[in-house]
Amino acid sequence: MTDHHATPEPTGQVADAVRGNWVDHRAPARPRPYLRLSRIDRPIGTWLLLLPCWWGLALGSLSKGAFTLHDLWIGIGCGIGAVLMRGAGCTWNDITDRDIDGSVSRTALRPIPSGAVSVKQALGWMAVQALVALAILLTFNTNAILLGLLSLLPVAIYPFAKRFTWWPQIFLGLAFNWGALLAWTATTGSLAWPAFVLYLGGIFWTLFYDTIYAHQDAEDDALIGVKSTARLFGDSSPRWLRGFLMGTVLLVGFAALLAALERSVLSLVLASGGAWAMGWHLAWQLTRFDPDDNALLLRLFRSNRDAGLIPLLFFAAAGLA
């Protein structure tokens, strides 16, 4: 078993980076610290930001009864935007957490605490990513643009949440699932109840997977006074995770039902079935959960890419039915 408290590699590879990733092995040396700052070596976070966007796009297209060429651009734009905004958000997170990260073995080799990038350089890199993302956002409709700008509020607050609440995962959920609202609005033109319900379902999903992730740092967090749901729940985590699982399935399924109400019966069954299929994956994660096995916790956390792809495939099939 690989423990996240093991001594970091002298190459500068961050402890939880994907082994063999192209950033650490093939990227030029000069931009490498900036790519690490954007978590390009850890793509799971980009997937977790992107998938709610694609959920919102798929259900929005299902609700209006058609998938247009502009919807294809919305999907591509969300993909590029997820990479950029996840990178900008992680850069902001590392700027605000630079003193904390240096005290946690899993994060000690991140670019800022390790000295590979200065705070000034990090701020510049964050601005570049955000400006390119803004250029993409401006190709969407006005309501979607306003939602995109409003999303900066939870993104800005999240890094500080673990200092004042035991529930920082809620703030992460507010930020990471905003794309469900934005993509729905980009394709339909306005917000509607299915988008709001989907957003809430995504927040429950974030509470599920990020509580699992936070258990990796529970000991270090306790030493430095950082709060998390993992520390709050402790040995009761499986019970709470089961509740988050049920909330995810019920809310995502209800959102799909609302979006498919005016479509065919087959579309309605497929759309709502995606949430239940996702639930089976989350239930599998829960059966494997072991708060003392850090390597397993990281694998379970990363498996949520597949968990999130499952309902997306069902939503897409519902749109074709």
Rank of each mutant, 00 (worst) to 15 (best):
L198N: 01
N93D: 15
T165I: 04
L57M: 11
A130M: 12
K162P: 03
I170W: 11
A58K: 05
R86N: 07
M85A: 04
P52L: 01
W284N: 13
I76A: 15
W47T: 03
A180N: 01
T46K: 06
T142E: 13
G202Q: 03
R106E: 11
Q13H: 05
L309A: 07
G279V: 08
R42P: 10
A321Q: 03
W55T: 05
G243D: 00
R32V: 02
D306P: 02
K120M: 14
P33G: 06
A66I: 13
A318R: 04
F160N: 01
A192P: 00
F196T: 13
Q169Y: 01
I40K: 00
T188Q: 07
R30P: 01
D24V: 11
L150G: 08
L131R: 01
L268N: 13
A195F: 03
A29T: 14
D290C: 06
L174N: 02
F254Q: 12
F233R: 00
A214I: 10
Q129T: 04
H70F: 14
W276V: 15
G65V: 09
P111Y: 07
N141E: 06
D24E: 14
L241T: 04
P33R: 08
R305G: 11
G247K: 00
G225V: 09
L147H: 01
A317G: 02
W184P: 06
W280G: 12
D210V: 09
I170T: 15
G102L: 12
G89K: 07
W280R: 15
D290V: 09
L123K: 14
L286P: 13
D94P: 12
F208E: 03
P154Q: 00
A66M: 12
A108D: 06
F171L: 11
R30A: 15
G102Q: 12
P311I: 02
P168H: 00
L270S: 08
T185I: 06
L62F: 07
L137V: 13
L72A: 15
A256V: 07
S237N: 00
H281F: 06
V117G: 08
R305A: 14
A116I: 02
Y158G: 05
V18D: 15
R39Y: 07
A195D: 01
A175P: 09
F289N: 07
S237Y: 01
L152Y: 02
G12A: 08
S63M: 12
G279Q: 09
W193Q: 13
L200S: 12
S267T: 11
A214E: 06
A122H: 09
H4R: 10
V128A: 15
L35P: 07
V119N: 05
D24C: 08
P33S: 04
W166H: 12
G247T: 05
Q216E: 06
L320E: 01
R30D: 10
G115M: 11
L153D: 00
V252Y: 03
G124F: 05
D217I: 11
W47N: 00
F301C: 05
A321W: 03
V117L: 15
P28F: 03
V197F: 03
G65Y: 08
G179H: 02
Q13A: 15
I145D: 01
L250T: 13
